[in-house]
């Protein structure tokens, strides 16, 4: 299914994606550590050995990624508002290892037929910070997670959770 990522105004980045599953499932997959660990991984070869996600207002978030070759980085954040199973608001920052400016993220899960339309709206403190995040912070963070094009285009062996 197609993902749309766009910048909006001076300070926002908006991501939309449709899922076949209903909002409750998608919400739970974002707020249950054991589930987050299975998908929020970036390119193949990366795992999330530490996943703290306390799904209540004021709850802590800490995701640590590692590639098994000595590279790792982490993200910390706090949950701000939780409206099961419709809306999450949290703040996050990457540690590279210096923390990036706070990224305020609102994620909305709307019913869309049998599935879910997810809209994730990131808000950075100002245009310069967004530019810096897109150019360095996010890239730096997601570099490990996302950026290598060759990894992105390499043959993917699905992580078969044979349960």
């Amino acid at each position: 299914m197609s993902l749309i990522l766009k910048t909006e105004g001076d300070t926002h980045v908006v991501v939309t994606r449709r899922f076949a599953a209903p909002p409750k499932s998608v919400y739970l997959a974002h707020t249950t550590p054991e589930l987050v660990q299975q998908w929020m991984l970036g390119p193949d070869g990366w795992t999330m050995p530490v996943c703290v996600m306390e799904p209540w207002p004021g709850g802590k978030i800490r995701y640590e990624w590692a590639n098994g070759k000595g590279h790792s980085f982490y993200l910390t954040g706090e949950c701000l508002e939780m409206n099961p199973y419709r809306r999450l608001v949290h703040v996050e920052r990457m540690h590279l290892p210096d923390p990036t400016p706070d990224n305020h993220v609102e994620t909305i899960f709307e019913e869309d037929g049998d599935g879910t339309l997810m809209t994730m709206r990131m808000t950075l403190p100002d245009g310069a910070t967004r530019a810096a995040m897109l150019a360095t912070g996010m890239e730096g963070g997601m570099e490990a997670s996302y950026v290598r094009l060759d990894q992105l285009t390499s043959v993917q062996v699905p992580a078969t959770a044979n349960s």
Binding site: M1, L3, A21, G42, A161
Partner: peptide, 14 residues
Amino acid sequence: AGLARNYDRLDRVL
């Protein structure tokens, strides 16, 4: 593309 990959994985989890 990176996010897309994460969400493809999420599809399987779901």
